[in-house]
Structures are given as C-alpha cells and as structure tokens.
Amino acid sequence: MPAAAKGNTGKKPGSRIAVGRRVFLGMGVLGAAGIVFGAKVQNILGNAFGSGLGGLLPGGDGFRIYTITGSYPVISESAYRLEVSGLVHNPQTFTLADLKAMPSTSFVQEFQCVTGWTVPNVHWEGVKLSDILDNAGIKQGAVALSFESYDGADSESLTLDQARLPDVIVAYRMLGAPVTTEHGGPVRLYVGPMFGYKSLKWLSAIRVVDEVIPGFWEQNGYPVNGWRDGSTGPTDKSLS
C-alpha cells in the first residue's frame, strides 16, 4: 500500500497540501463565473430547450409566487369586479364577462423579476389597458393610475403614457389557461415592458389620479419606473 501510494501521487506520503483554501477559492471563482455568465447560459439553454436555467431545478416552473399578505385572496369568476374610478368621465365596474366581451389581445413574452429570475415564453391574454382607459374617458389633469389588489395590501402605479403601451394589459388568461389564484387570478395586470412587481395580482380597482402614488414594492425600495433595461419593450417583435 505505501509503495502504491508513492507511485500514484508522486509525492511523499507525509507531504501536505492546502486543499481547504483551494476548494474555498474554487467555489468563489465558480460562483463569480455563474453570476457573470449564468444569464448567457440561460439564453443558450432557453433557445435550445425552450426553458431557462430555472427549468433545470425542481419546483415552481420557474415562477416564484409572491404574496405580501398571509394568504391568497380567493375570488370566484362570478364574484369578480374591476372598478375604474377617479378622474374619469364614466366610472365603471367590469365583471369578468364584461372584460371578455371587449377586444382581446394576446402575445408571448418573458416574465422577469427585478431580482433576476426569469420565466421565458409566457403566454398572456386580456384587454389592453388603453382600451379600458378610452372607454372610461380620462379627465383633464389626470397623469397617473393607481392600482389596487383584492389582497387589500398590494398596490401599483403607472403613468398614463406607460399605461397606454400595447403590452400593458388587464390579463384574464396566462400560460394558456385562466389566470390561477396563485398567479393573481381571475384577473391581474401584466406590464410587459417592466419588471414583474409592476404586474399587480388580483386586480380590484384602477383609480385615475393626478400624481404618481408609489405602490407597495416601490415603497420597499423597488424603482417606480421598473423598465426592463430595454431587453424587451414596447417594440417587442413577439407582440401580435
């Protein structure tokens, strides 16, 4: 055995190597490489297999489910109401059937969180927010929208200009099916050009207001204008 050991390693049996430091630094280097190149690897894998790096790991089909209250608000499709009020000529209350009766738009776009997790190729369908605003009739002096959620705690904001972008919709279908409760169903906001937290879940009310009122996550340090760095935006070619 001693002879074999000598032959294999070419080192004296008593020699000592700083393995700890090497493994520790090696983990650091691997981690740094993952940070810098992980997104590129994700793009390559996404193009090849139709799923990002998140798809390699078990659990959650890539989505992290955010809810800021103790549970999900559960709203039946028949009980659902969307109230549009504030600086409008015709305050309105929509049922889900009302929304589905309006012209619909659908497109495929990635859902990207401000903290980096991304779900590629998500199917979205609903009513353009600009159509809802046109129906309500915006009054003079209005500059922004304030969104409220059925959870009673979450809120969001958009300027009128942002709200009129073509991939900003009131969505009632997502991932090819009605929006599930955990994803904010029966109706949620989807703000395509911006990070995920702008896409308010369990949408209950849209108030047209004369100033931008920062929403929940914006009061917790997220940017009020959550543009996704131009990676995809209002001119995204996947829009139809």
Binding site: G26, M27, G28, I35, V114, T115, G116, R228
Partner: peptide, 30 residues
C-alpha cells in the same frame, strides 16, 4: 465556501440596483 458564495449572490439580489440585470439572473441561478 457556501457562506461566501451565498452572501455574494444574495447581496446582488438584495441590492440589485448596483448590478446589471444579467448578473442578477446569474446570481439567482447560482
């Protein structure tokens, strides 16, 4: 080594403003 890497990647997720979006995606993966 895990403490080192988790602290570095977690910091990128917490203080994301200071890092490009692609780094945030990579940090999430790591």
């Amino acid at each position: 080594g895990s403490i080192l890497v988790m602290l570095a990647t977690g910091s990128i997720l917490k203080w994301f403003r200071f890092f490009p979006v692609s780094w945030r995606t990579g940090a999430t993966f790591v």
